[in-house]
Simulated scan of single mutants.
Amino acid sequence: MSAKRPRYAAELDGGDGPWVVALRIRDLRDGKVVVYAPCLAAWPDDLDRALRDADCVFADGTFWDDEEPRRAGFSRRTATEMGHLPITGPDGTAGRLAALPAARRLYTHLNNTNPLVDPGHEGHRLLAEAGIEVARERAVIEL
Rank of each mutant, 00 (worst) to 15 (best):
D91I: 07
P115G: 07
A139W: 09
V140E: 10
N114V: 07
F58M: 09
A103Y: 12
G31L: 10
Y36M: 13
W19R: 14
R96Q: 02
L110N: 06
G92K: 00
T108K: 11
F63N: 01
R29T: 13
R52V: 05
I25Y: 06
A42P: 02
Y8S: 14
D91V: 09
V140K: 10
A37I: 00
A37F: 03
L106S: 10
A94V: 05
N111Q: 11
P69W: 07
V21G: 13
P90A: 15
P119W: 07
T62H: 09
L116H: 03
P115M: 07
L51I: 05
D65F: 02
A41W: 01
D27S: 11
Y8D: 15
A42G: 08
D45W: 05
V140R: 13
V140T: 14
G73F: 00
D55K: 11
K32H: 15
S75L: 01
H109E: 08
A41H: 02
F63S: 03
E133N: 12
A79C: 06
A135H: 13
L12D: 13
F74D: 04
R138W: 14
D53V: 05
A50I: 07
A22E: 04
G17H: 05
H109Y: 02
R105A: 07
R136Q: 10
R26D: 10
P86D: 03
P38Q: 11
L127D: 03
L40F: 01
L126E: 14
A130W: 14
A72E: 04
D60N: 09
N114T: 05
D16Q: 13
D91W: 06
R26G: 09
T108E: 14
R24E: 09
G14P: 06
R49D: 10
T80L: 11
L47I: 00
S2L: 12
K4Q: 15
G120M: 06
L116A: 03
D48C: 08
L97W: 05
D91K: 12
T93G: 05
A59N: 06
W43C: 01
T88I: 04
I132P: 09
A59V: 00
M1C: 12
A130D: 15
L127M: 05
D60S: 06
A50H: 08
